[in-house]
Amino acid sequence: MMYKLIACDLDETLISDDSTICERNREAIKKALSLGVKFVPATGRGYVAIANILRELNLYNKADEYVISFNGGCISENKDNQILKFTGIPFKKAEELFNIGKNFDVCIHVYTKEKVYLYHASDDEFDYMKVRHPVEKIDDQTDLSFLKGEKIAKMIYGNQNMNYLHEVADKIKNETADLDVSYSSNRFLELNHAGINKGTGLIWLADKLGIKPEETMALGDNWNDLSMIQAAGLGIGMQNAVPDMKKDCDFITAANNNQGGVGEAIERFILKSAKD
C-alpha cells in the first residue's frame, strides 16, 4: 500500500518538547513530499498559529497543500490560508460553556480564527500558550458579548490535573452531549461542534482530494488524535502516546516525539515501500 496523505498531529508528536522539529522528522517529510505524498498538519491549534512550522517544512503559502486545524473545525489550503470548510461552536453555546467553566478550577480558552482568549489563566498556562498561539487574557470580561459576531472555532478547559478534567467532563456531560469532547496535551479538555474532530476532517479532505481512506496515514499521541488514527488506513501512535490509547493504534513507533517518531513511521511505511 502506498499512502498518499499523512495527517500528523503537532504538539508532542511532530514537535519535540523544546518546540523544535528534529532533523529525522524534517528529512523524512521532505522525502515523502518529493514522492507526491501530502503532509497535512492536523492540530488543535489555529491555522494562523502554525506559520513557522509550515515554513520549516517548506509548506508555507503553498497551493494544493493543506492544514486541518482546531481539531477538524477548520480545513484550509495553505495558499493565502484559504478556508475550505469551517465548523465552529455557535455563539450561544460558547457563552453557555464560558459560564459553566467559571464554576470549576479551569482556565477557559476561547478560540477564534485569529486568537485565543484566556480566562483565569495561571502564569504557567499563559506562558505555555503564548509560544503556540496569539493569546489575550480576558479576566476583566464577565461574558463573551465582546466576541459577538466572531466565529468561535472551539473551547477548552485547562488544568494540569487530568483526573480533575475527567471529573469536570463527567459533571457537565449533559451540557456537552451535543459536542465532540476530547483531551489533549495532558492538560486540556477540548470542546468542538458535534461530529467535528480530526478523523472527520481527515476523511473530508481525503475525499476532496480523491484519496481513499485506506490510502491515508495518521500519527498522534493523545485522545484528540484517536479519531483520525482510527479513521486512517494506517493509524500510528507515538512511543510517548497516552498508554490507554495505544491498543487502538495499528502501530506504535519505537521513537518518541523527541527522537523522530514521525520520521521513523514515514521511513518504514512510505519511503521503504517506495524503494520496494
Rank of each mutant, 00 (worst) to 15 (best):
M2L: 14
Y3R: 04
K4E: 03
L5S: 05
I6F: 11
I6H: 11
A7H: 04
A7W: 02
D11Q: 07
D11E: 09
T13M: 12
L14I: 01
L14G: 00
S16L: 09
T20W: 05
I21Q: 02
E23R: 14
R24W: 01
N25A: 04
A28C: 12
A28K: 11
K30E: 15
A32Q: 01
S34G: 08
L35R: 11
L35A: 11
V37Q: 01
F39E: 05
R45C: 02
G46D: 07
V48K: 14
A51Y: 11
N52W: 10
L54F: 09
L59T: 02
Y60K: 09
K62Q: 14
A63Q: 13
E65D: 07
I68M: 07
G72M: 10
G73Q: 00
C74R: 14
I75M: 00
S76Q: 08
N81D: 15
L84E: 07
P90N: 14
K92F: 00
N99W: 00
I100S: 04
D105Q: 14
V106N: 06
V106A: 06
V106P: 09
V106M: 09
C107E: 10
C107S: 10
C107W: 04
I108K: 00
H109N: 11
Y111S: 12
T112F: 07
K113V: 13
K113Y: 10
K115R: 15
K115P: 13
V116R: 02
H120L: 08
S122Y: 13
S122A: 06
E125Q: 10
D127P: 03
Y128R: 07
K130D: 10
K130L: 06
V131L: 10
R132E: 01
H133L: 08
E136G: 06
E136W: 04
D139Q: 08
D140H: 14
Q141K: 12
T142W: 08
T142K: 14
D143N: 15
S145G: 05
K148Y: 03
G149T: 02
G149K: 01
I152E: 00
I152K: 00
K154F: 02
G158P: 00
G158T: 11
G158F: 01
Q160H: 10
L165R: 00
V168C: 03
I172F: 03
I172W: 00
T176L: 04
V181K: 02
S182Q: 04
Y183H: 12
L189D: 04
L191D: 00
H193M: 10
G195R: 01
W204Q: 12
L205A: 07
L209A: 03
I211N: 08
K212R: 14
E214G: 09
T216V: 09
M217L: 15
L219H: 02
L219G: 04
D221M: 10
N224C: 05
N224Y: 06
L226W: 03
L226A: 08
I229C: 06
I229Y: 04
A231V: 08
A232E: 05
A232H: 07
G235K: 09
G235I: 10
G235A: 14
N240W: 02
N240I: 01
V242R: 06
V242A: 12
M245A: 05
K246E: 02
K246H: 03
D250F: 01
I252Q: 01
T253V: 02
A254K: 14
N257K: 13
N258L: 06
N258A: 05
G261F: 13
V262K: 06
E264W: 12
E264M: 08
I266C: 10
E267A: 13
E267V: 13
I270H: 03
S273Y: 11
A274I: 12
A274R: 11
